[in-house]
Design a protein around this nucleic acid. Sequence first.
DNA 1: GGCCAGACTTAGTACAGGAACC
DNA 2: GGTTCCTGTACTAAGTCTGGCC
Length: 774
Amino acid sequence: MSVTKKQAVTLTDKKNGSKKRTRKHSLSIVDDEVINLNKKVKGKVNVKNSKLLLKNDIPLKKIEPDLKSTLAKQEDGDNELQSSQLSFTTNKSENSTKSKKISSAIKKDEETSETQVTNEYEEGESDDYKWWEADLEDDTEKWQTLVHNGVLFPPEYEALPNSVNLIYDGKPIKLPIQAEEVAGFFGAMINTDHAKNPVFQANFFRDFQLVLKESGGVLEPSGLKITDFNKCNFEPIFDYYESKREEKKQLSRAEKKALKDEKEKLEEPYKFCYLNGRKEQVGNFRVEPPSLFRGRGQHPKTGSLKRRVFPEDIILNLDKNAKVPELPVGHKWGEVKHDNTVQWLAMWKENIFNSFKYVRFAANSSLKGISDYKKFEKARELKNHIEKIRKDYNEKLHSKVTFERQIAVATYLIDVFALRAGGEKGEDEADTVGCCSLRYEHISLTPPNNVTFDFLGKDSIRFFQEVTVDKQVFKSLKLFKKAPKKSGDQLFDRLDPSILNKHLQNYMPGLTAKVFRTYNASKTMQDQLDGMNVELEQPIQEKILQYNAANREVAILCNHQRSVGKNHEASVQKAGDKIEELVWQKIRFKRALLQLNPGLKESDGKHFKDVWDLTKEKELEIIKRVSERDLLKFKRKFDNENEKKKEINEELLPETQLEEWMKKVNDQQNDYIKEVENDGKLSDEFMEKNNKEDKLREKIQKLEQRIVNANLQLKDKEDNSQVSLGTSKINYIDPRLSVVFCKRFNVPIEKIFTKTLRDKFKWAIESVDDDWRF
DNA sequence: GGCCAGACTTAGTACAGGAACC
DNA sequence: GGTTCCTGTACTAAGTCTGGCC
């Protein structure tokens, strides 16, 4: 048995039984072995009886000895990288000792260097692998072999300079390094809304005091007790971190690049893993750094200290034969598991909620792709049951049994308004709700059948909708709110998501409340696509606008919002001004054309109708605006250049230079004003420069195109100001619909999916034709 | 059958970096 | 070439759902 890095895999075409050499496999394969792979029918993957162990995955027992020898020596730099990232802060004095220990451990390691994932495999090999062309079978086992290099720990804490201190009651104090780090977390963010929130402050201060106590209390003045948050002044710390941020910004291009390269080198070993012998990307290989928890909305735990995670906290998951990633002397992994029924590579328990954090595969990995594919297929399957489900809940709205009626209304709300299931929340979580957890105060009823929903949903995003509902739904809701129910009481007191989901599974295996959101989102997109009025020869920009409009319908259905950016209003104003200026310029060139060839007014009148669209007042307003902006620009240029000259001790630009530039702007402004005063007649100087009819026409055409584009962009900007399109595109709209849109209307896929999304949805891009339907 | 740990998807936000503009 | 603005990605919080245990 020999090992080759790449070897063609012979595939058996199920349809005609013929053997084809179709592609190269990325790992060692047993000589001449024929691996049967059921060829997929285009666009279809057999999900029933799906097994995630794909038939062309390499069986562990067959490759194992070779894998071990093939996973060769690590490149020199890798160990050094480990040494730089594997240091774990405890306190200042321990730090240096630990770093030394780590360095020596790594040095030692270099001599016998052998690791799990090497760079021997060329990047991009996994690109060859198309799971959607394989036969998916049972999915209890997610992998047979899993090899990876563990996780990347955040850098150790760097102590503040001696001159930078927390001020308490007007006096600088010295803190133990652990407490200083926590003070630094707060100090660095005192200008944010979080830091102004009293709950955030209280939680931070409680944990800060705790860490201070754990680390032995204030160092100088010794014995000082920090008991009052209001006596703490974090400004010196804030100023320090601001200056660091500024320093980083001011780095030269080369310095920035060097830093980036260093970061990439550090990350390289963790970016990829080998799943069943194939190179796959790891998603979040970085362990979350310690920080202050930034909960959303009115979160009772916001500001709490998220503690540093050590190797001892980490549980690794890899195959039995994979080498356990090395750690510096004195450290060990919390646990090493070999659980192939799960999709995570590492996990740890975080300290705030005692919940788990996972290191997983990247979105473009085969496992994630298969999950995504199955999710959309399940939603598609709902098509076959939705009619019956709707018929049933409409009937049960009349039921005398409250439980049945509650199930019916809840299903109605989930189906029609895309509400989430709404699980129970704890005391230590933000008060947000979904369907089953709606309370008395979250809906108001206005006869005959109007309902106002007003509650905070996931991420404390407000769900506010005034809607008209089915009359029987209205009646039922009235019943569910009937006295003695009062504010604070559950609307659906007989339900919770598990009861509801159990009921839904009577209609279709695997049907849950969540599936309705995917189904209705994709169905909405399909309907929008069907109703689109797109001409093939339309500009792409316009086609994209139509796609975005459809995407927006879905986002609105799912209540995907985003906060309006601070600069939104100014940016809309600016875009409007820009359009006005483009129109003005276009008009000036059209006037020039008429001046050059007055006969055009007769022969081609309709193209010059807009020449007098702007009033004189408007034109003067635009001229004033343009001139003011130019003046400001030259003033800034003058200041900037002199600043630079000052730095390199060069002679400064004289004031006369600025005056000269300003005169230029003023002269220009006067020319423009003269034009307006002369009823649009262009100056001789302007006409001399623009004395060719075809050149003028070209300029006008370019300006017209720019105006169209700018208007489209402005419309999109306004329509999207509060709606977040990304979430629905990434999670709810079957990507095959977007591919169909692109194919049908000849729009490059790059215009709809970013690089990341193209990788994530490769299965959709490569598997559908333009007549595919959700 | 209820509870809850565990595993996964869905979500908004921060910010880096690149495109657009001048 | 510098500045501004916007897009894409990383990050991690916050949901949903399953299944094992008692």
